[in-house]
Write a protein that binds this DNA or RNA. Sequence first.
DNA 1: CACTTGCATATTGTATCCAATATTCGATAT
DNA 2: ATATCGAATATTGGATACAATATGCAAGTG
Lengths: 219, 219
Amino acid sequence: MQIDSINIAQTASAATIIYEALKKAIIEGQLADGAPLRQDEIAKMFNTSRIPVREAITMLEQQGLVVTQRYKGAVVAGISPDEAAEIWDFRALVEGHVIEAAVPRMSDETLELARSYLMAFSEGATPVDWGDQNRKFHTILYRDSGLFYHLGVIEKTLDRVDRYLRAQLALSNGLARANREHEAILAACERRDATRAAELTRQHILGAKTNLLDNLRKR
Amino acid sequence: MQIDSINIAQTASAATIIYEALKKAIIEGQLADGAPLRQDEIAKMFNTSRIPVREAITMLEQQGLVVTQRYKGAVVAGISPDEAAEIWDFRALVEGHVIEAAVPRMSDETLELARSYLMAFSEGATPVDWGDQNRKFHTILYRDSGLFYHLGVIEKTLDRVDRYLRAQLALSNGLARANREHEAILAACERRDATRAAELTRQHILGAKTNLLDNLRKR
DNA sequence: CACTTGCATATTGTATCCAATATTCGATAT
DNA sequence: ATATCGAATATTGGATACAATATGCAAGTG
């Protein structure tokens, strides 16, 4: 048949829609650490019953984005400096490995996309812009690795710390430094120097870690 | 007060109980790949309504242990040889890193526990025994790293592939080889040789990977 | 006034019921 | 005989109603 069709079976359930919306709100920091998620309130916002809301909250809990206590409800999960330090170490380990696997298989199209995100990053005006473009830039460089399990773990880890990542970018020297280091990583990819790209990625992440921790402790 | 008390708030909800039971059934292979999870059936088994069953299934889905299709339901998620290969690579990367961090902080008590699991492993009679003791052995060696995020990711990864891990152990040369390699890893830990323990752990996991893949392809 | 106790209210957990969709199976037509 | 259609059944998704628990407050007690 010659009809433009979409697979209706893939339309999202109410639970999925609510989950995505809440996840976005948490990731972008619109819901602060410790903020409670009231089922009734959310249900009214989405004009549904509490059932899909509960399923959405269950998903968020599995992702580690909220913590729930029985009969008390869910609150947005914060992150301690120690946890942040560990998660940045984890990122350096996994993202370094993945980019090393990706470089030999990296298409020209990928490199072009990466460069466009890099430009959008340096032209961004708000923390949300910076965070979005920063994430797009990194993710695209990992994609051609074809390591889907690794990629999934990285996604979940980034979701978990996105708020803090944005905060780090917004620090005084965060943006300029990120730009410089992104440029170097991309250059290594373009030279097809996988080892170097991996090394630069690890340094980039670990540098961001110390930068962030210095500031977390200062407060 | 002098009363033996338990924190009732920590008693599990119906959804959690069902989740744990289903997870166990999937991990131990009692539910085969592709087996459907009928909400009504499970609800009757646990003498509850379908609501907590659905929450349990959404938890399983977030863990990647089942895949669901709207209005069609959930089935146990299988794993392709490619995915298996990638996940074993991931394990080698992360578990190698974690054991290296753990060795310098490893307590004598941990080493004793590890040795007891090793003995129980070699004396086990069934695939379930082998799998349990194997997992206990590895997990205890990682614990003293204090890297909770890494440990959580490792747990989830092992849950995802536990069935295949058992299968690999049950292969002709699986047990003897695992025993030999475990012994070497533990010896390195006892010598406080972190680098060597990490290297042996990586080899152990990657060796199991090729062993498993040879057999997956044979079928 | 500090402290407990009991009640009213708020919130979450679960059961029951209805709606939406998928699947099975038989009847019919070609 | 095979394919197609449609009704009956099975199954999941969601709304409503009720039960269990937590929280805040006011009255009572010392």
